[in-house]
Design a protein around this nucleic acid. Structure first.
Length: 445
DNA sequence: GAGTTTGAAACT
DNA sequence: CAGTTTCAAACTC
């Protein structure tokens, strides 16, 4: 009701507290020993330097810290919304290009950020995440599925008529952006109506503290290696609330899961769902329309790059939705399937496994009350980018060039320590390569 | 572009 | 929490 929506405390608020100290991103965590491919050891060998640089880039990709969206994903550095634990009644605040440490309940995505108010304690129980605030508008939270071609696009224009663009019906409002150039009527989602907007935000948050959070969160079960059978694509994250589709089969954009290019999960309460791993309908949908494949690739690229949340890249995911229990595995509840801490035993991983039909490895999850145990497979992050042939070429390069370089280096009277370091670097590197070559590559070092 | 369908959000 | 209504996007023609 309108009265209820007016209930917030927007007007007359005390001045906002200053934004916490400008942050810098924490140092990138090194997952493996960082190899110094830029060292002088390669200075005289362009080919080697190039190969080393390529490997270094690969390693850097792997070492993007969890919870840090890429800069382009932070176009949605939105000042609207959320961390209720921090700011139950948070309001949008625009500050020019500032970065704020914000405790996030879920370390996955760029989340609209309310600014702290004076007198409100800043909980410290959650790791801070740097989120830039921008001056002009609340920018939308990352939407991975904006463009019809899958390209993450600038925000949509709404066509609201009755909601004043102050309800979640309005995509702009829901995304945390002012309406700008929209086709809406009687719009209150603008600077001129900031007070009303604040109240609406308050009311919305009152109804649902997570209202402005990304709907597609990083699933604790999400698996970066979860590849789509039909589209040969990773399907990361899952809808936090799940969809409730009845007629669309979850294969139309009415379905928020489908729209976000994720599979329905156990969170969903949909009927006649066809948006699950292995679904023939879904497979045909994508295979039949190359544009959809492009869409999925583009969306996926954004997701893998962190828009959905890096954590989704690190843990197994729910990707397959099934409504029957695997008779071979009689787990009565999902708790038996999904570990409480979202982790799965390493034992159930099958590295580089391939589905029986020759398709890419699939991950499985369950649905609703009828769960199927995970049979998660593992795939390297770049498995579909770097092909085995590429690896072999790289291996050749890394075998031959270093030998020559090592010889030249040794001949150049380098110190034993330098030589040892030089060799040790390639031992680690070679192990990585050998792993990616499915152990078909014998380490020459 | 108008009308219909759909499902999320809002409401009771 | 479940059922109903409202709403706007997605879809169809």
């Amino acid at each position: 009701m309108a009265g209820k929506e007016q209930g917030g405390g927007g007007a007359g608020q005390p001045p906002r507290a200053p934004i916490p100290a400008v942050s810098t991103q924490p140092p990138i965590k090194k997952l493996v020993r960082q190899l110094d491919f830029t060292s002088a050891a390669f200075a005289g060998n362009p080919a080697m330097a190039a190969a080393a640089a390529a490997v270094t880039r690969t390693m850097q990709i792997r070492t993007v810290p969890v919870g840090y969206p890429q800069p382009h994903q932070l176009r949605a550095g939105v000042p609207m919304g959320v961390p209720q634990q921090l700011q139950p009644r948070g309001l949008p605040v625009m500050r020019p290009h500032q970065v704020v440490h914000v405790p996030l309940p879920r370390p996955a995505m760029a989340v609209p950020v309310p600014q702290a108010r004076p007198g409100q304690a800043q909980p410290v129980s959650r790791p801070p995440v740097a989120i830039p605030l921008r001056p002009e508008s609340p920018k939308p939270r990352p939407r991975l599925y904006d463009g019809k071609d899958g390209t993450p696009t600038k925000k949509k224009c709404c066509n609201c008529r009755h909601s004043k663009c102050l309800k979640l019906y309005c995509e702009c409002f829901a995304s945390g952006v002012y309406c700008d150039g929209c086709n809406c009527t009687n719009c209150f989602n603008n600077v001129e109506n900031e007070a009303a907007r604040r109240e609406a935000i308050d009311a919305t948050l009152e109804r649902n503290p997570d209202a402005f959070r990304p709907k597609i969160g990083s699933s604790p079960h999400a698996n970066r290696n979860n590849m789509d059978v039909a589209g040969d694509l990773p399907l990361v994250g899952k809808h936090n609330k799940g969809c409730h589709c009845k007629k669309s089969g979850c294969l139309k954009k009415y379905c928020e899961c489908f729209q976000a290019n994720i599979l329905c999960s156990e969170n969903c309460k949909c009927m006649d769902c066809k948006n699950f791993e292995g679904s023939e309908e879904r497979k045909h949908l994508y295979l039949g329309d190359p544009k959809n494949l492009v869409h999925m690739h583009q969306v996926t690229n954004a997701a893998v790059n962190g828009a959905i949340g890096a954590t989704s890249l690190l843990s197994p995911s729910t990707s397959r939705k099934r409504k029957q229990i695997d008779p071979l595995l009689d787990h009565p509840t999902k708790e038996h399937v999904v570990h409480k801490n979202g982790q799965l035993s390493q034992a159930i991983y099958q590295k580089n496994a391939v589905a029986p039909d020759g398709s890419l490895p699939i991950s499985q999850s369950a649905h609703h009350n009828m769960m199927e145990p995970f049979k998660v497979t593992y795939r390297p992050l770049l498995a579909d980018i770097i092909q085995p042939g590429d690896i072999r070429e790289l291996c050749k390069l890394l075998v031959t060039v270093p030998r020559e370089a090592a010889k030249a280096y040794a001949d150049n009277q380098s110190s034993p320590i330098d030589q040892a370091l030089f060799r040790s670097n390639f031992t680690v590197l070679d192990c990585m390569i050998a792993f990616n070559c499915k152990r078909s590559f014998s380490c020459p070092f």
